[in-house]
């Protein structure tokens, strides 16, 4: 079962990479990378069990943290890039009823 789950997670990681390469927008890429990161956490936890070495979990935890830090960092920096185009918040569409 663990092997099956590992394979599933691997497949999802490949799908995420495809999305990261295809894009089209910057945010799609960041989203894909973020998803890739969270899936890596799962993958490492699973691999730890496949190998019978549960101390891998420490790494999984660090991953979760580092992934968060880098996503926030990327957003912060991309914010700085796009600062010029920054205007008021886009108007939310009215619910047509």
């Amino acid at each position: 079962m663990i092997i099956a789950a590992t394979l599933a997670v691997l497949v999802v990681m490949i799908l995420a990479i495809i999305r990261a390469v295809v894009g089209p927008s910057l945010y799609d890429r960041i989203l894909a990378v973020n998803m890739f990161g969270t899936k890596t956490v799962l993958l490492i936890a699973l691999l730890g069990f496949v190998m019978g070495r549960p101390e891998f979990l420490d790494i999984a935890m660090v991953y979760a943290l580092i992934n968060f830090v880098s996503v926030i960092g990327v957003l912060r920096l991309s914010d700085a890039f796009n600062a010029k185009h920054n205007g008021p918040v886009a108007e939310p569409a009215k619910r047509d009823s």
Binding site: A20, V21, V33, T40, I44, L47, I59
Partner: peptide
Amino acid sequence: VMLAGIYGLVCAS
């Protein structure tokens, strides 16, 4: 750069 980040993750796995 993002892909380089992914590469790091793949490497680590």
